[in-house]
C-alpha cells in the first residue's frame, strides 16, 4: 500500500492533522487527526509499505509485543483506507 497523493501533515499546537492540500485533493474537505504514534507511522511510511513495516516501526519505538503492534497497525490501516489517505 501507499499514501494517496496530495495529503500533508500539519501540526496544530500539540496535535497533528492530515489535510488534503494537493491539487489531487481539490474536493477533499475532511481533516484527519492523528495521535503521536499514528503521526510517527505516517511520517515513516514512505513509498510502498505494508502492515509488517508499521508493526516493526511500532515495536522499535514503543514497548509493545509484536502481536499487539500488528493488531494496532491493522486497525489504523483500515481507518486510513476508509478515509482515503492510503490506497492498496
Amino acid at each position: 500500500m501507499k499514501k494517496v497523493d496530495g495529503f500533508v501533515l500539519r501540526q496544530l499546537g500539540e496535535e497533528y492533522i492530515i489535510v488534503g492540500e494537493g491539487v489531487e485533493q481539490i474536493n477533499f474537505n475532511k481533516l484527519i487527526s492523528l495521535n503521536k504514534s499514528a503521526k510517527y507511522l505516517w511520517e515513516n511510511a514512505e513509498g510502498e509499505f505494508d502492515i509488517n513495516l508499521l508493526r516493526d516501526l511500532l515495536v522499535k519505538k514503543y514497548d509493545v509485543s509484536s502481536d499487539l503492534a500488528y493488531a494496532d497497525a491493522s486497525s489504523l490501516v483500515e481507518k486510513w483506507i476508509e478515509v482515503g489517505i492510503i490506497e492498496m
Binding site: 500533508v8 496544530l12 492540500e21 491539487v23 481539490i26 481533516l31
Partner: peptide, 23 residues
Amino acid sequence: NNIQSYSVILPSCSSMKWDKNIA
C-alpha cells in the same frame, strides 16, 4: 476544541491550497 475549530475555519477560507506558500 482546537481541531474542531481548525476544521470549521479551513473550509471557510478562500485559498489555492496546492500552492505551498499560500497553504
